[in-house]
């Protein structure tokens, strides 16, 4: 096993980083093998790290250890996920896939319950209970804007058809149609802000990367 000093580790690391950075930035000229190599390495390393983390931080302490603890209760309780795991494995065989449906059903059921429950209790209800108009000054204006934006955005995604225009196209009620236009505006602004944030995040990341490379280069000079 090769052991590197911190300086060496930084050097190798830096170099690899530089290479991978350049390789990933080479996507600007199009898909190329350097980019795909860097991409595959990054994905591979990430997946490998994740597997290790899951094994050491999930399976071993919470499955292997109880099973090997000798405690019947622990073993029994730890056996349930083992059984479910085995049922999931049976999904691979078409003949026994129906047995894996039990584990899948358990997982889907639990996840759905947690997600739906949390969405209701953590987002829908609190958001619904929020006073529409509160504060004063700008806060009040902000609340008004928020209310208007929320309502119009929801209306924008409603297609209530009352009749047809002269050209035969389906046409909503005028109020709904114009409110939908406003809601589309808010939606566009929101998407724009999100995109801007993504750009900022990317620029920040790029900046940090460049800065690191610059520092690495600076460290290279003797």
């Amino acid at each position: 096993m090769i052991s590197l000093s911190p300086a060496q580790a930084d050097l190798v690391g830096g170099a690899l980083g530089f290479l991978f950075t350049v390789a990933l930035l080479s996507y600007l000229i199009g898909d190329n093998p350097l980019y795909r190599i860097a991409l595959h390495i990054f994905i591979g390393v990430s997946v490998g790290y994740i597997v290790l983390v899951v094994i050491y931080q999930a399976l071993v302490p919470r499955l292997v250890a109880p099973l090997t603890s000798g405690d019947p209760v622990s073993i029994g309780l730890a056996g349930v996920p083992v059984i479910l795991f085995l049922l999931l494995l049976l999904k691979l065989n078409p003949r026994t896939s129906w047995l894996g449906s039990l584990a899948v059903a358990f997982m889907i059921g639990v996840g759905t319950a947690v997600a739906v429950g949390g969405a209701i209790t953590g987002t829908l209800l609190p958001q619904s209970n929020m006073p529409l108009l509160k504060g004063d000054g700008l806060a009040f204006l902000s609340s008004i804007i928020i209310v208007i934006g929320t309502i119009t955005t929801l209306i924008a995604f409603q297609f209530w058809i009352r009749g047809r225009s002269a050209s035969g196209d389906a046409q909503r009620v005028a109020l709904i149609r114009y409110a939908g236009y406003v809601g589309q505006g808010f939606t566009m602004i929101t998407l724009g802000v999100i995109y801007a944030g993504m750009i900022l995040s990317g620029i920040a990341i790029l900046s940090e990367r460049l800065s690191t490379l610059y520092g690495w280069f600076l460290n290279l000079r003797p």
Binding site: A196, A204, S207, E208
Partner: peptide
Amino acid sequence: PGLRAAWNGQVVGSVAA
């Protein structure tokens, strides 16, 4: 320095963007 570079680069880059 990293924070500064990030900040400066973010600002300049955002402006350029």
